[in-house]
Amino acid sequence: MQLVGLHHIAIIGSDYARSRDFYHRILGLPIVSESWREERQSWKLNLALPDGSQIELFSFPATPPRPSRPEACGLRHLALAVGNLEHARATLSAKGIELEAIRLDDITGQRFCFFADPDGLPIELYECRR
């Protein structure tokens, strides 16, 4: 087996319209496709990331909450690479998003910070200066 990269990450939102707005308008991810799946009573939205991977956003009726803190088993967070952490923080802050303070990765020396999506999923902005 030869893995060639990450294709997509799937997220289920508790409020589809709110999550759609967050990932598309606030984060600025372009919509690849959007469809209503009648048999599942579910929306499926594909959003493009600059590297070609995607975020799949789903809605399902009556979804149970998933614990994400403290350190529950499963997906820990979604990390998005940015070229300029201050610019990314300023852009999100201007849109009303609360961000944690900038931290320094003690292993790589790179800077990062966290914020949350509408359902509390931790999202990391990880600065990748080239």
Rank of each mutant, 00 (worst) to 15 (best):
M1A: 15
M1I: 11
Q2C: 15
L3N: 15
L3H: 13
L3D: 13
L3T: 12
V4L: 14
V4C: 13
H7F: 14
H7S: 10
A10H: 04
I11W: 01
D15W: 12
A17P: 07
R18I: 08
R18H: 10
R20S: 05
Y23K: 04
R25Y: 05
R25H: 07
I26H: 03
L29K: 02
I31R: 06
S35H: 14
R37A: 11
R37D: 14
E38D: 12
R40S: 14
R40L: 12
R40G: 04
Q41P: 05
Q41F: 01
Q41L: 03
S42L: 12
W43C: 08
W43M: 08
L47G: 00
L49N: 01
L49D: 00
D51T: 06
D51M: 07
S53H: 12
S53M: 15
I55Q: 01
E56R: 09
F58C: 10
S59R: 07
T63F: 03
T63Q: 10
T63V: 11
P64Y: 01
P64K: 06
P65K: 11
P67M: 13
S68A: 09
R69G: 15
P70K: 13
E71Q: 15
A72L: 12
G74N: 10
L75T: 08
H77Q: 09
L80T: 01
V82I: 08
V82A: 08
G83P: 06
N84H: 05
N84R: 01
L85C: 00
E86K: 08
E86R: 07
A88S: 10
A88T: 04
T91Q: 04
L92F: 06
L92H: 03
L92I: 08
S93E: 09
S93N: 09
A94F: 03
A94T: 05
K95E: 06
G96L: 14
G96P: 10
I97S: 00
I97Y: 10
E98D: 15
E98I: 11
E100D: 13
A101P: 05
A101K: 01
A101V: 04
I102Y: 02
R103S: 08
R103Q: 11
L104M: 06
L104P: 01
D105K: 05
D106H: 11
D106Y: 13
T108E: 06
Q110V: 02
C113I: 07
F114V: 06
D119P: 01
G120L: 09
L121Y: 05
P122M: 05
P122S: 13
L125T: 00
Y126P: 00
Y126N: 03
C128Q: 03
C128V: 06
C128E: 03
C128K: 02
R129A: 05
R130N: 12
